[in-house]
Design a protein around this nucleic acid. Structure first.
Lengths: 155, 155
DNA sequence: TATTGTTATACTCTATAACTATA
DNA sequence: TATAGTTATAGAGTATAACAATA
């Protein structure tokens, strides 16, 4: 039973940046695997599931989705194609700017999105924590996901 | 500036499984992007960087790497090929079982691996936390990454 | 001119299945 | 037989560059 290569733990309680990174990677691998299994249950790839998960009932412009998913806009075309082929989304041209198209979830799409969300919320890594611990985790992650660079105004 | 779709926050302080999942996904996207940028600085793809990062100086059997990286063993062949072409690893056949080959980092590989590790440990998401917070995060993640299923012995 | 979505291209990752060489 | 690594294959994600339609 192989284990990830993890740097030695500090016995002094000092900052553990490297260790935190190792664990974060291990956690990401774990979530990727667990989430992928749930997505597969809905006949979706992980990215298709993530994209569907990001759709509000009103739909979202494809450009906006690319920004949220942090990928090039051209990728959304293909992902949208496949979600559309699966009958989970429709493309709707904006009435105010005919250049923009929104990916709008169909009724089936909304159902899958919600069912998938419920399943994901019960995944082991999250469920392994007590309510208090989940609360603590949420607080820490909020700080971590914050702005890339505070862009301090130092004139 | 689009934002991820995040479920409403509880005002009652009760378990926030869904919210924790949303933030975890956002964090994963963020880390994927940041880590990818660092890997690119070393002319590596994210997976190549992760693989190199998992190598000890003695090298690791390819099968073991597949288990650690949670992917099919056949993928390691290609990743190993590319790392080898870049002069960062060598294949070494085991002296005790000639079926197994280990991916062993070259001197250049060890240098890149270490430099890359140092860069990653300083990524913004981690650096955004204080030493105490990092310590707390490590504790939480240890529980989360634990065994897939405790596999309780209930005869 | 600038922006949105699309297309074309090339590369990587991914799993599956069949193969080889060992054990 | 069983296992480690390989090869072949197919599908999906990714970025880059160029394009049409629209603003």
């Amino acid at each position: 039973m192989p284990e990830p290569r993890v740097l030695p733990t500090a016995a002094d309680g000092r900052p553990r940046g490297p260790e935190a990174v190792e664990l974060l990677f291990a956690l990401m691998d774990r979530m990727r695997e667990d989430f992928g299994a749930v997505a597969a249950d809905f006949d979706l790839t992980p990215q298709q599931a993530v994209t569907l998960h990001q759709l509000t009932d009103e739909g979202r412009p494809m450009r906006e989705l690319a920004a949220v998913l942090r990928c090039d806009a051209s990728n959304i075309t293909g992902i949208g194609d496949r979600l559309e082929a699966a009958g989970l989304v429709e493309r709707r041209t904006s009435s105010t700017d005919r250049r923009v198209k929104a990916l709008v979830p169909t009724e089936a799409g909304r159902r899958v999105r919600d069912d998938l969300g419920a399943r994901v919320a019960e995944l082991p890594p999250i469920a392994a924590l007590s309510p208090d611990e989940q609360q603590t985790l949420v607080g820490l992650m909020r700080k971590m996901v914050a702005p890339p660079q505070p862009r301090a105004a130092r004139p």
